[in-house]
Simulated assay, not measured.
Amino acid sequence: MASERLVTWGLPVENAALIIAELTANAALHGRVPGRNVRLTLKVAGGTLRIEVRDACTDRLPAVRRRPEEEGPGESGHGLLLVEELADRWGVTPGLVGKTVWAELTPKSQ
């Protein structure tokens, strides 16, 4: 549905769809609190797409995990590296209940 919305807005989908998939998967896997939902919000202002994913978990803030080269790549734990590479900016906004992980794509990076 998110990709369809981006197409409707006339925005490129590929990078945004990867970021949306990663942030929502992280929220579902690491930020889920029973009885609470995850919320995806898409906004466009001045050509910049802002992707926000809110969850109810406050005790774990996401961080990019970098592994030493000698360990080699693992099967998971690299999603935020992808977000960091594809987005122009990204971050976390803690809330009273939960947090919002956001990423922005400007027209040149979309």
Results as ranks from 00 to 15, higher is better:
Leu86Tyr: 08
Glu52Gly: 04
Arg39Glu: 12
Ala103Ile: 01
Thr58Gln: 10
Pro12Ser: 02
Pro73Glu: 15
Ile51Gly: 04
Thr106His: 14
Leu86Asn: 07
Arg66Asp: 12
Leu40Pro: 05
Lys108Tyr: 08
Ala17Val: 01
Thr58Gly: 14
Ser76Pro: 03
Ala56Thr: 04
Val7Ala: 14
Ala16Met: 01
Glu4Gly: 13
Arg66Ser: 10
Leu40Lys: 11
Asn37Met: 10
Ile20Cys: 00
Arg50Gln: 14
Ala2Asn: 10
Val33Thr: 10
Arg36Gly: 00
Arg32Gln: 10
Thr41Tyr: 10
Gly46His: 08
Thr24Asp: 05
Ala25Tyr: 09
Thr93Ala: 07
Gln110Thr: 06
Val38Gly: 12
Gly46Phe: 11
Leu81Val: 00
Leu42Asn: 03
Gly31Phe: 06
Leu6Pro: 07
Asn37Asp: 13
Glu75Ile: 10
Ala28Gln: 14
Val92Thr: 13
Asp59Cys: 09
Val38His: 11
Arg60Gln: 11
Thr41Gly: 13
Leu82Trp: 06
Gly95Gln: 15
Trp102Lys: 01
Gly31Trp: 04
Thr24Glu: 05
Glu104Ser: 06
Gly72Met: 03
Val13Leu: 02
Ala63Met: 07
Leu80His: 08
Gly72His: 01
Ala103Phe: 08
Cys57Gly: 06
Pro62Ala: 05
Val13Ser: 02
His30Leu: 09
Leu42His: 07
Ala28Gly: 03
Pro62Thr: 06
Glu22Arg: 00
Thr58Ile: 04
Ser109Leu: 04
Val92Cys: 12
Pro107Ala: 05
Thr24Lys: 08
Asp59Ala: 12
Trp90Ala: 01
Thr58Trp: 06
Leu81Arg: 13
Leu42Arg: 09
Ala21Asp: 01
Thr100Glu: 10
Ala17Glu: 12
Arg66Tyr: 11
Glu85Arg: 15
Gly74Ile: 06
Leu42Gly: 07
Arg89Val: 00
Pro68Ile: 03
His78Phe: 15
Lys99Pro: 03
Ala21Trp: 00
Ser76Lys: 12
Leu29Asp: 15
Ser109Phe: 06
Val33Pro: 09
Val13Lys: 06
Ala2Tyr: 09
Gly10Ala: 01
Val44Gln: 12
Lys99Gly: 02
Asn15Trp: 00
Leu80Phe: 15
Val44Ile: 14
